[in-house]
């Protein structure tokens, strides 16, 4: 099975929130969505962007957890808190640089994106990337991601490929807005 990663091209987002609707459809997700879509500047324009767990290689959420409730899957996916271990301290929600983990007050339990581990462990794309109508969220091979990186790395400080710009290394790769800057027009 070829390794694939979640790859995000923020400029494409149309704000449909289908990723959130689809998140609830993953078998293990108890019909609750686990990520976010933001209106970047709602009074000005219609730009939106998804804020997804980036599945950090050295995740702050897991490091901050005193109960080792946040496990890392062999695929690199940073899993949701284990019900039997989570003590509800909410350290992780504060530790995550992007504010990803959500908290269920009633259950006293953290829950977060597990990259649809039921699917991705078998190489099937996560629900969000399956449905995303604009290809903001894609499920790509290493090779395809390399290509994206080449295509969008302008080397002129008008950067496009964001990989070196995030806090620490992440399993999910992101392209911040501006991908069209480097495109050569056909005519």
């Amino acid at each position: 099975m070829e390794k694939r990663r979640l790859y995000i091209e923020l400029e494409n987002c149309i704000g449909c929130r289908s990723c959130l609707a689809a998140c609830t459809q993953c078998g293990g997700h108890e019909e609750r969505n686990r990520n976010y879509v933001y209106d970047v500047n709602p009074l000005v324009n219609r730009q939106t962007m998804p804020l997804m767990c980036l599945h950090c290689v050295n995740p702050a959420c897991a490091r901050s957890c005193p109960a080792q409730a946040i496990q890392i899957h062999e695929t690199g996916a940073v899993l949701s808190a284990l019900v039997e271990k989570c003590i509800g301290c909410q350290n992780c929600t504060i530790a995550c640089p992007y504010g990803i983990p959500k908290f269920d007050e009633e259950e006293n339990l953290m829950y977060k994106c597990d990259l649809c581990i039921d699917r991705t462990k078998d190489g099937i794309p996560p629900m969000c990337a399956s449905v995303c109508p604009s290809n903001t969220l894609q499920w790509l091979t290493e090779e395809e991601i390399d290509q994206k990186q080449k295509q969008f790395d302008l080397g002129n400080d008008k950067w496009v490929t964001s990989m070196p710009y995030l806090e620490g290394e992440t399993n999910v790769k992101v392209n911040l807005p501006g991908i069209l800057q480097g495109t050569t027009k056909l005519f």
Binding site: I14, R46, P133, N135, T183, K185, L186
Partner: peptide
Amino acid sequence: PTSMFRVWAVQERGGYLIVADPRETP
């Protein structure tokens, strides 16, 4: 919405997108 991955792909290839609309839709 599910036309959009094809619409964006035109631009990604260097093609053009012209939109006539009173609103600046997504």
